[in-house]
Design a protein around this nucleic acid. Structure first.
Lengths: 134, 134
DNA sequence: ATTTACGTTGACGTTAACGTTAACTAGGTG
DNA sequence: CACCTAGTTAACGTTAACGTCAACGTAAAT
């Protein structure tokens, strides 16, 4: 049995600390397609996962279009080998991009570590000076 | 001796594949402060490094304000221990943020690897089918 | 019965990060 | 000298990603 867990829009909003407006906006852009009960939106566990993916994408600087591309990779809309080969190309490209992003971040982390080291030794000196001025 | 290498705005623009407008815009925002020869901008090696940092930041989703914060960490505008402690706090926060970003990316990489695996096996089947239809 | 809470669809406003003219200057080159 | 190339400022335009009303529906609670 699959999980039948459903969510309301404000449940998701408070869980992920975003506004309902944001969630509806993602729907406008075609990133989410919740079912309805009357006119109210009902979100499935799968919808929640999609939202999670979008937000993860946002945190690492993906645009909504880029996140949609990734979401679209999840459900294979294709059925012939040519489409699959094309999809594999796109997956390769994305994985490459992500690996380069990790390198960028690691570079920035090293830079910050340098700054931290300098800052810490400067702090020692400042503290010593202040002690001398007592 | 320090490197006396200088750059014109279009040299930097073509090296980093951005427009001169973009570089001037970063200056407007206070991210770059090149020297001048008459009214022309002259960029030092240090300016180039700053630009590199900005672009690295952009690739991982930092706003220009966030990049400026990081740049500002590089030159210690402070001189007392209180300021240094405050700066160390900010460095901690940024390093934490970056580590979480790496986790986000690794999560996305795993997801993509799953998609790739499914795609590759689906491709095998599709190829077998096409062969059968010959 | 009405207030309260939560939901809905527009529609216009806002901010960041540039793009896009336009109008001008300053320095070589044929 | 005329022209071309690179640079400059100033100002308005554009797109993404929402924020912010307004005006309304529905269902539970008082």
């Amino acid at each position: 049995m699959s999980k039948q867990r459903r969510f309301t829009i404000s449940e998701l909003a408070s869980e992920f600390e975003i506004t309902t407006r944001t969630i509806r906006f993602y729907e406008e852009k075609g990133l989410l397609v919740p079912s309805r009960k009357g006119q109210q939106r009902i979100y499935s566990a799968a919808d929640r996962v999609r939202l999670q993916l979008i937000l993860r994408g946002k945190r690492i600087g993906l645009s909504l279009d880029e996140s949609r591309e990734i979401i679209d990779m999840y459900d294979p809309t294709s059925d012939n080998s040519e489409q699959y080969l094309f999809l594999l190309e796109k997956i390769n490209a994305k994985q490459g991009q992500f690996e380069r992003q990790i390198e960028d971040i690691q570079h920035l982390l090293l830079d910050l570590q340098e700054v931290r080291d300098k800052c810490e030794s400067a702090l020692q000196i400042a503290l010593a000076d202040e002690a001398a001025n007592q």
